[in-house]
Simulated assay, not measured.
Amino acid sequence: MTEAVRLARRVIELTGCSRSEAELYVQGGWVTVDGVVVEAPQHPVTDEVVALLPGARPEPAEPATLLLHKPAGFDMASGPEAALALLAPENRWPDDGSGWRLLRRYFHRLAPAMAIDPEASGLVIYSQDGRVLRKLAEDGNKLEQEWLVDVEGELAPYGWNRLVSGTKFDGWPVAPFKVSWQSEQRLRFAIKGVRPGLLQHLCAEVGLKATAMRRLRLGRIGLSKMPAGQWRYLPVSERF
């Protein structure tokens, strides 16, 4: 049996590249050991077949941003372990057209952004990319969000006029928004600056009780037809 060596060293022997390039090949998910992608440069190999995938590039991997259809009842404040149970490889949306490969590195150090109420469902963001997280933290309130809200009860007299003419929440004016009926028991909101409890408050102000809420869109990024509990990558070409 051949003496075990680090995978990065075997890549150097295979390609003649430098040590730093070998580590980038491995960390970028471009190296297979007996047909299985291995992302750890220190992984020991002996007589296994080591190969580079087609299109391999010794470049640092871009940080990933994942878009999740959060199911109702999941609390984004419950910690990273709970989130990773949803952001598991087997929950990737089969119709994800981002072109991103499924690599372990993309599931490390994910942070949530633009959280929604635990009882709400819909589009939420988890990202490794500090640029994305900073952008959403600084400018998130400027992004229009599209929501569907199921309601029950009777609209109060003159309630619609009061709703669309402006109101306050927690003592602060609510930015102008659009609202329309999607059905007899469903409202569609196009609104900015959504905070926990805001949509329930707007409904209660006019005699309605919000029974279910789903975020369909955040800025230019839509939920599309992705089912609850599944996720997809944010393509490089898409911006909030």
Rank of each mutant, 00 (worst) to 15 (best):
Q128I: 09
V149Y: 10
S127Y: 00
D129C: 12
L148C: 12
W100N: 01
L155V: 14
R105K: 14
I116H: 14
I116E: 07
K168Y: 01
L148H: 11
P118Y: 07
W100I: 06
R104P: 11
V124S: 10
N161M: 10
Y106R: 11
W147L: 08
F169L: 01
Y126K: 00
H108M: 05
A115V: 02
H108Q: 15
S165V: 04
Y126N: 01
N141T: 14
P94T: 12
L143C: 06
V124W: 02
W100C: 11
R104A: 15
G166F: 01
G140R: 04
G166P: 09
P118A: 02
A156L: 04
S127P: 09
K168M: 00
L102H: 07
D96P: 14
W172P: 03
R92G: 02
M114S: 13
S127D: 02
D96A: 12
G130S: 12
V164R: 11
R109T: 02
L110G: 01
V124H: 04
R109W: 10
R101L: 07
L155T: 13
L103P: 15
Q145G: 09
D117Q: 00
L110F: 03
G99H: 14
V124K: 03
G97C: 13
V124M: 06
L148Y: 11
I116F: 07
W172I: 05
Q128C: 02
D95N: 12
T167Q: 07
R162Q: 15
G97A: 15
W147Y: 14
L143N: 00
P118K: 03
P112D: 06
E146R: 09
M114Q: 13
Y158P: 03
G122T: 04
R134Y: 09
R101W: 09
G159P: 03
R105E: 12
L163V: 02
G130C: 12
R101G: 09
T167Y: 01
R134I: 08
G153E: 07
L143F: 02
K135W: 12
Y126L: 00
E152A: 12
L155F: 15
R92S: 04
G99I: 14
R105M: 10
D170L: 08
K142W: 01
S165L: 04
K168A: 04
